Amino acid sequence: MDTPALTALLPVVLLIVLGFIAAKVDWVRPAAVKDLTNLVFYILTPALLFRTMASVKLGELDFSPILVYFLAVGLVFVGTMLVFGFNTLAAARALAHTFSNNVMIGIPLVGLVYGQEGLVTLLTLISVHALVLLGSGTVVFELAQARQFSSEGRPQGLARTLGQAIKNSVIHPIPLPIIAGLLYAQTGWGIPGVVDKPLQLLGSALGPMALLLVGITLAYSKLGSMIRPAMRIAVVKTVVHPILFLGVAWLLGLRGIPMAAMALAAGLPVGANVYIFSQRYGVAQEEVTACIALSTGLSLFTLPVVLLVLERLR
């Protein structure tokens, strides 16, 4: 049972290691990290999100397993904010506790283990995963940032704070292409080939580029003091999150391959998009970088265990 997990996870580890090496041999210098982050955040990510959402037909999807998944996500996210307070650091940790690497690791892993039926469930999750988590995460980040500004002597009214947060959450490189793609999909029009091919090329570059960037940042980060908080995030993401999901799923009667595919998604390591958020908001960058690397390494051991548990439960 561990072969599919290793097959999917090892390329991810390799890309992070390659980025680390590239920085150590000065192929990528510290001054370039911010520019590479902007490239990923403003070009590659919107291309992938728009193209993914532009093929989503809402009426054809079964959202019941997805609702159970996001119920567990909500419990983890809210619990994190309650423990660490309503601030951008807590928001970064909450997003890291809940945002899975569904595309780079989830698709090949679920496809190998559960076939087409499992993939349909996972792709349904992926179609709304970014919209729900990155969209709501942006709102939380903006509200937390506005609250911190207020506490620093730059107060503003609640209505203005909410309005500004909502505006910044929509006119933003993450939610905007998701919403635009979703609206375009409902027209029934296909994306013209002359547009679709560049979007496909840009989107396919996102995963490898983001993982290389994690390795590059890792090389320039002093992780000695970050090991403990990063490992805490890694344990919550790869152990606590899937256990909590399984409990919620069992209570709500979700069974079979849909339950197994969602449990596997919950147990995936932290997605690289969390780092992009931490970089954009200037918070917990070293901690998030470390937790992505540590959770990916830890998942080499936890995912096979999750697969064995799921085999007994189904």
Results as ranks from 00 to 15, higher is better:
Asp2Gly: 13
Thr3Pro: 01
Leu10Arg: 02
Leu10Ile: 15
Leu10Phe: 14
Val13Gly: 04
Leu18Asp: 11
Ile21Asp: 09
Ala23Cys: 10
Val25Met: 14
Ala32Leu: 14
Val33Ile: 13
Val33Cys: 05
Lys34Ser: 13
Leu36Glu: 05
Thr37Pro: 03
Asn38Pro: 01
Asn38Ser: 13
Leu39Ile: 10
Ala47Gln: 06
Met53Asp: 06
Ser55Met: 06
Val56Leu: 11
Leu58Asn: 05
Gly59Asn: 05
Glu60Cys: 02
Phe63Gly: 08
Ser64Pro: 00
Ile66Cys: 09
Leu67Asp: 02
Val73Pro: 06
Leu75Trp: 01
Leu75Asn: 02
Met81Lys: 02
Val83Ile: 14
Val83Met: 11
Phe84Trp: 10
Phe86Ala: 13
Phe86Asp: 07
Asn87Val: 07
Ala90Met: 10
Ala92Leu: 08
Ala92Asn: 11
Arg93Thr: 13
Arg93Val: 14
Ala94His: 11
Leu95Thr: 14
Thr98Cys: 15
Ser100Arg: 05
Asn101Cys: 13
Val103Leu: 08
Val103Asn: 10
Val113Asn: 03
Val113Ile: 09
Val113Glu: 10
Glu117Gln: 10
Val120Asn: 09
Leu123Phe: 00
Leu123Glu: 11
Leu125Pro: 13
Ile126Leu: 11
Ile126Glu: 05
Val132Pro: 09
Val132Phe: 08
Gly135Thr: 01
Phe141Ser: 00
Glu142Pro: 05
Glu142Cys: 05
Glu142Arg: 08
Leu143Ile: 05
Gln145Phe: 05
Ala146Ser: 12
Arg147Thr: 15
Arg147Gly: 04
Ser151Phe: 08
Glu152Met: 14
Pro155Glu: 12
Leu158Ala: 12
Leu158His: 02
Ala159Ser: 08
Arg160Gln: 14
Gly163Ser: 06
Lys167Arg: 07
Val170Pro: 03
Pro173Ile: 02
Ile174Gly: 04
Pro175Lys: 00
Pro175Asp: 01
Gly181His: 07
Leu182His: 07
Leu183Asp: 00
Tyr184Asp: 04
Ala185Asn: 01
Ala185Glu: 03
Thr187Asn: 07
Gly188Gln: 02
Trp189Ser: 10
Gly190Asp: 07
Pro192Cys: 07
Val194Lys: 00
Pro198Tyr: 03
Pro198Ala: 00
Gln200Asn: 06
Ser204Arg: 12
Ser204Cys: 08
Met209Asn: 00
Ala210Gly: 09
Ala210Arg: 12
Ala210Phe: 08
Ala210Asp: 10
Leu212Met: 11
Gly215His: 02
Ile216Ser: 02
Thr217Arg: 15
Met226Asp: 14
Met226Gln: 14
Met231Phe: 15
Ile233Trp: 01
Ile233Val: 14
Ala234Glu: 13
Val236Arg: 08
Leu244Tyr: 00
Leu246Gln: 00
Val248Ser: 07
Ala249Met: 02
Pro258Arg: 04
Pro258Gly: 02
Ala261Tyr: 06
Ala263Trp: 04
Val270Thr: 15
Tyr275Ile: 07
Ile276Thr: 13
Phe277Leu: 13
Ser278Lys: 03
Gln279Lys: 14
Gln279Val: 10
Val283Asn: 08
Ala284Arg: 11
Ala284Gln: 08
Val288Met: 13
Thr289Gly: 11
Ala290Val: 07
Ile292Leu: 12
Ile292Ser: 08
Ala293Leu: 15
Ala293Lys: 12
Gly297Asp: 09
Gly297Cys: 14
Ser299Val: 09
Leu300Glu: 02
Leu303Trp: 04
Val305Leu: 15
Val305Met: 13
Val306Met: 15
Leu308Asp: 12
Leu310Ala: 01
Glu311Thr: 07
Arg312Trp: 10
